[in-house]
Computed example of a mutant assay.
Amino acid sequence: MSHPAANYEEIRAEIGRRFPTLSRQLQAIARFALERPHDVALDTVAEAAGKCEVQPSAMVRFAQTLGYGGYSEMQRIFREQLVQRSSSYRERIATMRRAEPNLSRPKAVLHDFVSDSIAHLTHLEEHVTAERLDDAVAIISRARCTHVLAQRRAFPVACYLSYALGQLELPVSLLDGVGGMLREQVHAIRDEDALIAVSFRNYTPEVLELTADAHRRGVPVVVITDSAVSPLARSATVAFDLGDDSDRPFRSLVEPICLAQALVVSVGHHLTGTTRAKAKRPARRGK
């Protein structure tokens, strides 16, 4: 990169691109920067280093690796992103929690999940770009068949995508590995098909391996994961990184399900628009 990233989207992409080549210490800082951008924007270099459990000099070295003259120059990008954001739902959530201190245990659990879901959906809208959505919709719309791959806690997202794309009367295959045939199912995918792969930390090794195999064979891959430095993102044609929720005992599925619904409905709009455009074309007259 001849010049350092000029905005937040560029720096996220650059961190993801460089991540495999970074030292273990710099990889830890990269994860911190992507997962806690508010801290990078607002903390001093010493405070951020303390949270990342590294020396301040390592934070400076990370910024210089990305092409910046120092940490403060990189920090400016994160601060600009923070200023551009809409008013924070997290502040509203904190207020709600202070206002309801005596909720019963089940009600408190529901309240906690609802509050976190509001924050997740706000994050989703702010960080998913129109370009990525358009690219993913185009890949799914032109595919001969769309195959959906996920395991463990990400599997409900794959089930929904398989069901909903089928309701659009699109050829779709849920790669569920019944009978131990997952590897064979993935190897049957052709380059005119598309693969949607979903995985979050701790990533399912088989999903990573088989997605990488499909990508190497030229299959367009749409990835839904939790970080720009996710190993699954390396195999993506288009990647949606939704943020790392690994500090929570249960990962909320609200964000990936909402994204999945948006993709399905957008594909439906795209296909309807294409059909109408074809119908409006004048028929050719015979000679």
Rank of each mutant, 00 (worst) to 15 (best):
A5M: 00
A5R: 03
N7Y: 13
Y8A: 04
E9C: 09
R12K: 10
I15D: 00
R18D: 00
R18M: 09
P20Y: 04
L22E: 03
L22Y: 00
R24M: 14
R24P: 10
A28P: 01
A28F: 12
A30V: 00
R31S: 10
R31N: 10
E35I: 03
E35D: 09
H38M: 14
H38F: 08
L42T: 14
T44V: 08
V45C: 11
A48L: 11
G50S: 10
K51Q: 01
C52H: 07
C52W: 03
V60A: 11
R61K: 12
F62I: 01
Y68W: 04
Y68C: 05
G69C: 07
Y71L: 02
R76N: 14
F78I: 02
Q81D: 03
Q81H: 05
L82C: 10
Q84R: 12
S86K: 15
S87M: 15
S87G: 12
Y89W: 15
Y89E: 12
R90Y: 14
E91S: 09
R92Y: 13
I93M: 09
E100V: 15
L103N: 06
P106G: 07
D112G: 06
D116M: 09
T122Y: 11
L124M: 10
E125R: 08
H127P: 00
T129D: 04
A130V: 08
L133A: 08
D134W: 06
D135Y: 10
A136Q: 03
V137A: 05
I140F: 04
R142D: 12
A143G: 06
A143R: 08
V148Q: 01
L149S: 01
R153Q: 12
A154T: 04
A154Y: 01
Y163K: 09
L165S: 01
G166S: 01
Q167F: 15
Q167E: 10
L168Q: 02
L170R: 03
P171S: 11
P171D: 08
S173Q: 15
L174F: 05
D176N: 13
G180M: 02
L182P: 01
Q185F: 12
V186P: 02
A188W: 07
A188L: 13
R190F: 13
D191R: 08
D191S: 14
S199V: 04
F200E: 03
T204F: 05
V207L: 09
V207A: 09
A212N: 14
D213K: 07
R217C: 04
V221H: 10
T225H: 05
S227T: 07
S230C: 08
L232F: 09
A236L: 05
F240V: 06
R248G: 14
P249K: 04
V254A: 04
E255Y: 10
A260S: 03
L263P: 01
V264P: 07
V265E: 06
H270V: 04
T274R: 12
T275Y: 12
K280R: 13
R285I: 15
G286H: 15
